[in-house]
Amino acid sequence: MESILLVEDDPHLLLLYRRFLQEAGLQVHTAANGQQALHVLQQEPVRLVITDLLMPEGDGFELMRAIHNQYQHLPVIAITGGGRFMSSQFLLESARSLGARMVLHKPFREEELLQSVVALLHELAEPIATSLPESIPVVPADS
């Protein structure tokens, strides 16, 4: 079972997203802000992080910077509905520039969230193609 971290300050959305992702067969750890998320990351191995961008006590941007510094290969899906002074488009573009692998504008359909998670997990699971260096001759078995 794949383990992910969901970071959302709205308790209703946190519960809704968590239930949906769990029903899809994922183990979901949750946090209500960036500070809690960093604590969870120290305690639990996760394959990816889904984070809201605008939250009190450590927003998604601060969390993404910490992930970039401490967990370089941990992919992030950034979500937001925008803020009073910034559009969601600006926030999501900013999240991409900080390394978010995918972004979603709230409100989104649960299927969109699940498709994003599955795509990233699939990408992480694909084996790395290996090939022999050209300097090593390959001799057929019947020679």
Rank of each mutant, 00 (worst) to 15 (best):
E112L: 03
S97A: 15
F108G: 07
V49Y: 03
M55P: 07
Q89R: 14
P127L: 01
A129P: 00
T80Y: 00
E57G: 04
Y71H: 15
Q43P: 00
A66C: 13
V28Q: 00
A32N: 02
A100S: 14
G60P: 10
G82C: 07
V118F: 05
G58E: 11
S87E: 07
R101W: 05
V28D: 00
E123T: 08
F108K: 04
F90R: 05
F61L: 13
A125T: 03
N33D: 14
F61S: 11
R84M: 15
L124I: 04
L63N: 08
E123M: 08
H73K: 12
S135F: 10
H29R: 02
R65K: 15
L104P: 08
E123A: 11
L54V: 15
I77Q: 04
H68G: 15
E62G: 15
L91F: 07
G99M: 09
F61Q: 11
T51H: 10
A129C: 02
E44A: 07
R84G: 13
L26E: 01
A125N: 04
E134D: 03
D59H: 12
A119Y: 02
T51F: 04
H68K: 14
P56L: 14
V40A: 03
L53D: 13
P45K: 13
L121E: 02
P107E: 05
E44N: 02
A66Y: 13
H68S: 15
V49Q: 03
Q43G: 00
H68Q: 14
V117S: 04
V118I: 09
I79Y: 03
G83K: 13
G82Q: 06
I67Y: 08
H73Y: 11
I50P: 03
I50K: 03
N33V: 04
S116W: 01
R65P: 06
N33Y: 04
Q70G: 14
L113Y: 08
I77A: 08
L113P: 02
E57D: 14
E111K: 15
L54A: 14
L124E: 02
A95W: 04
E57A: 12
V40C: 05
L48E: 04
L104C: 11
Q115R: 07
L114I: 10
A66V: 14
E111A: 15
M64F: 09
S135Y: 09
H39K: 11
S94P: 06
M55W: 05
R101C: 05
Q89K: 13
N33F: 02
M55I: 12
L54K: 14
I50L: 12
L120E: 08
M86G: 07
T80C: 09
Q43W: 00
L63V: 08
I79L: 13
L63W: 05
L104T: 06
L113G: 02
A66G: 12
I67R: 11
V103F: 10
A119H: 08
Q115D: 13
D52Q: 08
A95D: 10
S87G: 06
A37I: 07
Q43L: 03
E126V: 04
A31L: 02
E62P: 11
H68V: 09
A129D: 06
L48D: 03
V40H: 02
L54H: 13
I128V: 12
L48A: 07
I67K: 09
L48N: 02
V118L: 05
Q43M: 06
M64S: 10
I50M: 10
V118W: 03
R47L: 08
E62Q: 15
I128R: 07
